[in-house]
Computed example of a mutant assay.
Amino acid sequence: MNQEVHIETYDAAWADQYAAEAMNICSALENAELLLEHIGSTAVPGLSAKPVVDMMLGVEKLCQIDEWKGQLEAIGYEEVHHPDMPERRFFRKGPRGAGTHHLHIYVYQSEAWNNQWLFREELRRSLAKRKDYERLKQTLARLYPHDRKRYTAAKAPFIQRTIKQAQRCRLP
């Protein structure tokens, strides 16, 4: 099923939506020690985005999620299996193609976790990168308005390049 790609102008309410949902998750997983981060374009002030709040949860082992699956389902999250991404577990809140929140679960401080964090921080830090990424997303949304998979795949080279540049800049 192809999903529509709709980019909206930055909305400061996205940060509030993240904070509210983070509290909801923490409340549902009350006995767990959690590290949650707001990631993706909605986490970057001034950046246009699909209006979906992306979050990442850091865990010691991905199998920990099996213990929490019922609690996440009780607050509206559905696990979506992505066998091509074994380094992550993924849950969506809301219907397919119209989800409101995405929860990406990684081993804390793993390469995948760090790359998500680096990309977000680089976009927050660099106005030029943020503008380049926004232009790319708008172009791709016009090229692939009903194909989210192609839209996402076409962003990958920019994302990987940005992460590699950020990694080089962090070296001593």
Results as ranks from 00 to 15, higher is better:
residue 79 E to I: 01
residue 79 E to C: 05
residue 79 E to A: 00
residue 79 E to M: 08
residue 80 V to L: 11
residue 80 V to E: 13
residue 81 H to A: 10
residue 81 H to W: 12
residue 81 H to C: 07
residue 82 H to R: 12
residue 82 H to A: 09
residue 83 P to E: 05
residue 84 D to E: 14
residue 84 D to S: 02
residue 86 P to H: 06
residue 86 P to W: 02
residue 87 E to M: 00
residue 87 E to I: 03
residue 87 E to F: 04
residue 88 R to K: 05
residue 88 R to N: 08
residue 88 R to A: 00
residue 89 R to F: 09
residue 91 F to Q: 08
residue 91 F to C: 00
residue 92 R to P: 00
residue 92 R to L: 14
residue 93 K to M: 04
residue 94 G to T: 05
residue 95 P to K: 15
residue 96 R to A: 15
residue 96 R to E: 15
residue 96 R to Y: 14
residue 97 G to R: 01
residue 98 A to F: 11
residue 98 A to R: 09
residue 99 G to W: 10
residue 101 H to A: 01
residue 101 H to L: 04
residue 102 H to L: 10
residue 102 H to N: 12
residue 102 H to M: 10
residue 104 H to A: 03
residue 104 H to C: 03
residue 104 H to W: 05
residue 105 I to K: 06
residue 106 Y to G: 01
residue 106 Y to D: 01
residue 106 Y to T: 01
residue 107 V to W: 06
residue 108 Y to E: 14
residue 109 Q to I: 05
residue 109 Q to L: 11
residue 109 Q to M: 11
residue 109 Q to G: 08
residue 110 S to T: 07
residue 112 A to W: 09
residue 112 A to T: 12
residue 112 A to I: 07
residue 113 W to R: 08
residue 113 W to T: 08
residue 113 W to F: 11
residue 114 N to T: 14
residue 114 N to M: 06
residue 115 N to P: 10
residue 115 N to G: 13
residue 116 Q to H: 14
residue 116 Q to C: 06
residue 117 W to Q: 14
residue 117 W to E: 13
residue 118 L to T: 09
residue 118 L to G: 10
residue 118 L to W: 11
residue 119 F to Y: 09
residue 119 F to Q: 06
residue 120 R to T: 12
residue 120 R to W: 03
residue 120 R to L: 10
residue 121 E to V: 05
residue 121 E to L: 13
residue 121 E to C: 12
residue 122 E to H: 14
residue 122 E to K: 15
residue 123 L to D: 06
residue 123 L to N: 07
residue 124 R to H: 03
residue 124 R to S: 07
residue 125 R to F: 02
residue 125 R to N: 08
residue 125 R to G: 08
residue 125 R to L: 09
residue 126 S to K: 12
residue 127 L to P: 04
residue 127 L to M: 15
residue 127 L to W: 13
residue 127 L to K: 15
residue 128 A to N: 13
residue 128 A to P: 01
residue 128 A to G: 12
residue 128 A to V: 14
residue 129 K to C: 13
residue 130 R to W: 09
residue 131 K to Q: 15
residue 131 K to W: 11
residue 131 K to G: 04
residue 132 D to P: 06
residue 133 Y to V: 10
residue 133 Y to F: 15
residue 133 Y to L: 09
residue 133 Y to H: 04
residue 134 E to F: 03
residue 135 R to Q: 15
residue 135 R to W: 11
residue 135 R to I: 15
residue 136 L to N: 07
residue 136 L to Q: 11
residue 138 Q to D: 06
residue 139 T to M: 08
residue 139 T to P: 05
residue 139 T to W: 01
residue 139 T to H: 07
residue 139 T to R: 12
residue 140 L to V: 00
residue 141 A to I: 07
residue 141 A to T: 06
residue 141 A to W: 01
